[in-house]
Design a binder for these strands. Structure first.
Lengths: 165, 165
DNA sequence: AGACTGGCTTAGCTCGTTCTTAGTCAGCTA
DNA sequence: TAGCTGACTAAGAACGAGCTAAGCCAGTCT
C-alpha cells in the first residue's frame, strides 16, 4: 500500500500503542462542529463583528454567540473593544496567533474539496500569492528541503516522549 | 490584520457573495464526525480489517460499520475481498486515491495540535522523510516556487466561474 | 453435527448541536 | 424620557452521532 504510513521504533506494531494524545484528534475537537469552522472561515475572510459572523455564516445568533465564546476561551480568537463614532463601545473578534496558524488546515481542506467535492466544476475560489500572483497550495516538505510524497513518510515517536523510559 | 485574507475582484466586499460551494465545508462534511476521522487515521496507519478499525479507534462496532460504509460510498475507501489460509473470504478496507489525498489535511491538523494542543509537551509522534530522515511539515507555496506567508494571500474567483457571466 | 469466530445488523437510549422564538441590556438619538 | 439598535441570553424542540446489549450469518475447526 503506497498510501499508508510506515511505523518505526516503538510504534511498530500499531496494536502496541494507543493514540490517546493524538494531535489531529485534538485539533479536530476544536474545529469539528460546523459552527466553529464557519466562524473560523469568516474570521480569515475578515469578519470581526458579531453581526458579520451571524449573517455571513448563516448560523443562528445563540449558536454563533456560544461558539464565539468557545473559540475565545480556547485562545483562537480574542475580544477587543472598539468604538465607531457616535456608537457605543463594542467588541471585535480577532484571530490570535494560535488562530492564524489554523490557516494550513483550512487550505488543506480547500485543496481536497476543490478536487474531490466540486463535481468536476473546479475551485470556486483560489488563493494567489500577493507578490507574484501565482496560485498557492500546500506541499509536504522535509527539513532537508525535499518535496515529500505520501509514500515516503515514516512515523516516529516525538522527542519529548523518547526520553522518559 | 496580518492574519486575514485579502479579497479580490467580485469577492470584494465579503457581504456581496455567499460561500455556498465552499470546498472547505464540503471536505469537513466528510471528516467532520469523530468516527470518520478516527477510521481515516487508522487507514493511514495501515488498518484494513473491520476488527482492526474497531479496536484501534475504540469505536463501537455499529458506528464503525456505519462509517466504513459511508467512507466507501463516498469513495475514500474501497472494499476488496481477501482470504487468509484456512479462513473464509473477507473484505479489506483500503484507501483510494481520493482517500490518500486527505493526507495533507491530517498533517495540517497534526501540525497545529502539536504546537497548540499538547500543553507544551511537544509532538507525541512525528513524520520523517524516508529518504533523508528530516522532519516533514506542510508549507504554503505558490506556483512560482516561493514560500508564502498567511499575510501574502489573496482570494480570487476560480477559473471556471469567471467565464459564465 | 455442533461450537466457535469475525464481521457485521438491529433496537433502544443518551447527549450534544442546532434551530426557532422570545426576551434582555447598554448606550446613542430624538 | 422614550425609543432604537447591536449584541447578546434563555427556553424548548428536533435531529444526529455516539453508546450498550443482543442477535445473525457464513465458513472453519473438532
Amino acid at each position: 500500500m503506497s498510501s499508508t504510513i510506515t511505523m518505526t521504533g516503538p510504534l511498530e506494531p500499531r496494536s502496541g500503542w494507543t493514540a490517546d494524545r493524538c494531535s489531529m484528534a485534538r485539533t479536530l475537537d476544536v474545529v469539528r462542529n460546523r459552527a466553529s469552522f464557519l466562524i473560523l472561515r469568516e474570521a480569515f475572510y475578515g469578519a470581526t463583528r458579531f453581526e458579520e459572523f451571524v449573517s455571513q455564516t448563516g448560523l443562528s445568533e445563540p449558536v454563533c454567540a456560544a461558539r464565539l465564546r468557545e473559540l475565545t476561551d480556547v485562545g483562537i480568537l480574542r475580544r477587543e473593544p472598539y468604538q465607531e463614532p457616535g456608537q457605543r463601545t463594542r467588541h471585535a473578534y480577532l484571530l490570535t496567533e494560535q488562530g492564524s496558524e489554523l490557516l494550513p488546515v483550512l487550505v488543506a481542506l480547500m485543496q481536497w474539496g476543490d478536487r474531490w467535492a466540486q463535481d468536476g466544476l473546479g475551485a470556486p475560489v483560489e488563493f494567489h500569492h500577493a507578490g507574484c500572483g501565482g496560485r498557492v497550495g500546500l506541499e509536504l516538505r522535509c527539513s532537508g528541503g525535499h518535496a515529500v510524497g505520501g509514500e515516503e513518510l515514516q512515523l516516529a515517536v516525538g522527542p519529548q516522549r523518547q526520553q522518559r523510559s
